[in-house]
């Protein structure tokens, strides 16, 4: 009967993981720095990941729920305030109306949301042959395999499709993509970006960096969450021992053995 708890918990896990698996090939496993009980982001990796996003992904993929100020916030890439101001001001933001009732362009400020590559979804589809490049803000949480899946898709372009698979025009074979077909051509090749910290920009390296960055954009408070979580559980463990001892003491009034 005591195993009942375990049965229930494992069943929940099994049930929820069923749809995660199946379908496509199992994604590659990466030993991310943000995994585990004390997982933290690697700042340099997040900064590199932002560079990959900005120079490669951002030409098609929006990042609607992020603001430039987020880039300097604790637990993220932690760019300096000055760096964030410089990044923000490199973008043109449509603002207004001014006193004359006209919209105008100005340099970006840290408070501004990330500039989207297309004004709306229809424009995005029109520019991409009907495919809509999804918004990347919460992409890692919106895909069943999470970070591993995103990384795998970026790495999944190498192999040739099986001979029985018909690949249409404007569609690419991807080993890890759900359904194995993807409308995005291989986004990263060796040397797509030049890292200022001297890291070698291999496809694998860039994929890891940008995936780590996307994990942060999807879950900006991950570090704080794990930190508070550890303290909370530690507290609860100590408290449970105290309550247990109190309980024993109280019940000892009517029971000699328990």
């Amino acid at each position: 009967m005591r195993n009942f708890f375990l049965v229930i918990l494992t069943s929940i896990f099994i049930c929820t993981n069923i749809f995660a698996a199946g379908e496509a090939t199992k994604p590659l496993k990466v030993d991310w720095s943000f995994n585990g009980f004390f997982g933290k982001f690697d700042r340099a990796q997040l900064q590199r990941g932002y560079q990959v996003y900005k120079e490669v992904c951002a030409s098609c993929h929006s990042m609607r729920y992020l603001s430039y100020r987020n880039l300097s916030e604790v637990g993220g890439p932690e760019f300096s305030i000055a760096e964030v101001k410089a990044i923000a001001s490199s973008f043109q933001i449509k603002d207004g109306p001014n006193e004359d009732g006209e919209m105008f362009e100005r340099n970006g400020l840290p408070k501004d949301r990330f500039v989207s590559p297309y004004p709306n979804e229809k424009a995005a589809r029109a520019a991409n042959g009907g495919a809509y490049p999804p918004d990347m803000s919460v992409l890692v949480k919106a895909r069943a395999g999470g970070a591993n899946y995103i990384y795998s898709v970026l790495m999944g372009y190498d192999e040739k499709p099986p001979s029985n698979m018909k690949i249409e025009e404007g569609v690419y074979y991807n080993k890890y993509m759900a359904g194995n077909k993807i409308r995005m051509s291989q986004p990263l090749v060796d040397g797509s970006v030049t890292y200022s910290d001297g890291t070698k920009p291999t496809v694998s390296q860039m994929s890891k960096d940008v995936t780590a960055f996307l994990t942060w954009t999807a879950e900006p408070h991950l570090e704080k969450r794990k930190r508070i979580g550890f303290k909370t559980i530690l507290y609860l463990l100590i408290f449970s021992i105290l309550v247990f001892l109190s309980m024993k003491k109280i019940w000892s009034r009517i029971e000699t053995k328990m």
Binding site: A142, R225, I228
Partner: peptide
């Protein structure tokens, strides 16, 4: 308190495991 430990485990270390990833798509 024991129940809360399980609860906290989900909230802090697997907050989305019981949900469905598609719900992060608008």
């Amino acid at each position: 308190v024991i129940f809360m430990i399980v609860f906290a485990g989900f909230v802090f270390y697997a907050p989305n495991v019981l949900g469905h990833s598609d719900n992060y798509i608008p």
